[in-house]
């Protein structure tokens, strides 16, 4: 997709996620050490960094799976750690979360996996309405023929796509992708990258893409946030981030290039 076309739909006056001074530790281990950033409406930010730098912890805090030790996290104008269960659930309906290992319910087939969040959250839906919604998202991820298959019968790339479809069924305004291309071959990675961009365009979502894959970051992020040791080292357009003599940045770039 032509990314320059997207620039005009990013509204830099309206931030959908706003994070100020975020800290998080697990016992002795400090994971996030003062994160500040804004995600604007319609924008994709790729958070790039080595494994264990706290990237996934960041999005788990955004969706309320983890609580911050310090700092403020505002999502769609609401401070996440101050919400009660009901308010948090209402907010979560507006956020899609794609897990690193897809996290498909392995006792359910593809249809049931997709219909489950819908039927559990929206009461009194007719069978036809559920089927239409499932067909729509399966069509969006290009896996119409996998309707009755079990997750164990799907390839890694297909699982990722179904995982994304499951989040799309609730029509989220924000998408959070945790390592969408990890463990995939280059061709499947390219397909998943294309899908992330299609989702941004088709569903008009704002997204955070957590990745250690430079290609994924470059092709999906309108901005790149380079994360190191629980802090954002650099944040900006891809060229701005990597046009640097910083040893850490160069080291990461070279590592990915070799990979």
């Amino acid at each position: 997709m032509d990314k320059s076309r997207l620039q005009h739909i990013i509204n830099t006056d309206e931030s959908v996620i706003s994070i100020k001074g975020l800290y998080k530790s697990f016992e002795d281990l400090e994971v996030l050490k003062g994160i500040d950033f804004n995600l604007f409406k319609g924008e994709n930010i790729a958070v790039l960094g080595k494994s264990g730098t706290g990237k996934s912890v960041l999005i788990k805090i955004i969706v309320g799976l983890l609580k911050p030790d310090e700092g403020e996290v505002y999502v769609l104008g609401q401070q996440v750690d101050k919400l009660n269960r009901k308010e948090l659930d209402a907010l979560r309906l507006r956020i899609g979360f794609s897990f690193q290992h897809s996290a498909l319910y392995d006792s359910m087939n593809v249809y049931q996996n997709l219909a489950f969040p819908l039927t559990m959250n929206i009461k009194n839906l007719s069978k036809k309405e559920v089927n239409n919604a499932v067909d729509e998202v399966l069509d969006a991820v290009g896996l119409m023929d996998k309707l009755n298959q079990m997750p164990s019968d799907l390839s890694g790339g297909q699982k990722k796509r179904i995982g994304i479809a499951r989040t799309l069924i609730l029509k989220p305004e924000i998408m959070l992708y945790d390592e969408p291309t990890s463990g995939l071959d280059p061709i499947t990675s390219t397909e998943v990258i294309a899908l992330i961009n299609e989702v941004q365009q088709q569903y008009n979502t704002s997204s955070i893409i957590i990745t250690h894959d430079l290609t994924c970051a470059k092709n999906t992020g309108n901005r790149i946030a380079m994360m190191l040791d629980g802090q954002f080292l650099r944040i900006g357009k891809f060229e701005e981030v990597f046009d640097s003599n910083d040893e850490e940045v160069k080291g990461f770039f070279n590592y990915n290039f070799i990979q």
Partner: peptide, 8 residues
């Protein structure tokens, strides 16, 4: 966690 983030 997937259930949790789907508001279930």
């Amino acid at each position: 966690d997937a259930m949790e983030v789907s508001a279930i």
